[in-house]
């Protein structure tokens, strides 16, 4: 079943001397359960595409259907609600709240979404292999562990789509592999569709589909086993 459908999606930025076409007519369908990797050089538009998909950014033109419904693009709070109900996000620098323990970082998102479920939070930490670290603070665990907490946090409110922008960019290759394995198993067990932006070709092994993008256009789109 199609989760995301983009038709002729454009994102143009009006600069003083020129118009920058960050996205220049993207047509894309992503099915539920897919793990998509967006590859491309710097400035190719992959992060802009991710921002439009996550309703952080507002497309200049084109349509964006998510789960059969048009994604709001005018009202900031409706876009936030869309993210809260549908999107999980994993950041390159983990972005854990340093003042909260590993468990509290997950509980906070649940509380803010009005869906506090401590058992699920603990289960998610078990899923990412951090059940022994629940009372520790982010500064007390490694970068890889922090990113796994971030993954657990991102799926804590049962999103339909998980997004990651260079989520292993701050990790060494061994840790990256561990984190990606965790992510794949988490997505599979929670039945979450995922889209990751990366420069790292080695991550292709964790994807079911690879889309290459350049100058705001998709230049290749291939399924991988």
């Amino acid at each position: 079943m199609t989760l995301i459908e983009l038709k002729n999606l454009k994102r143009h930025y009006e600069m003083s001397s020129e118009t920058v076409k960050a996205l220049d007519g993207i047509d894309l369908k992503i099915e539920e359960g897919e793990r998509v990797i967006l590859l491309g050089p710097s400035g190719s538009g992959k992060t802009t595409l991710l921002n439009c998909i996550s309703a952080l950014d507002i497309p200049t033109d084109g349509s964006y259907i998510f789960g059969g419904k048009t994604v709001p693009r005018d009202k900031s709070e409706q876009m936030t609600t869309f993210r809260r109900e549908n999107i999980g996000y994993v950041f390159q620098f983990f972005n854990l709240l340093q003042d909260l323990t590993v468990l509290e970082n997950i509980l906070l998102i649940q509380e803010l979404s009005g869906e506090k479920d401590q058992d699920r939070a603990i289960n998610l930490l078990k899923l990412v292999g951090l059940e022994d670290e629940i009372d520790r603070f982010p500064a007390e665990i490694s970068g890889g562990q922090q990113q796994r907490v971030a993954i657990a946090r991102s799926i804590a409110k049962k999103p339909k789509l998980l997004l990651g922008d260079e989520l292993t960019g701050n990790l060494d290759s061994e840790t990256s592999t561990k984190v990606m394995n965790t992510l794949v198993s988490a997505c599979e067990s929670e039945k979450i569709t995922a889209i990751f932006v990366t420069h790292d070709e080695s991550l292709i092994q964790f994807a079911t589909r690879v889309i290459r993008i350049d100058s705001g256009k998709i230049i290749s789109d291939e399924k991988v086993s």
């Binding site: 709070e77 993210r83 809260r84 950041f91 998102i109 803010l112 991102s154």
Partner: peptide
Amino acid sequence: DFELSTLRVLGAPINKL
């Protein structure tokens, strides 16, 4: 900004914040 923007990206509603 760091933590508030993180929470906003993760969908924290403005009224709860």
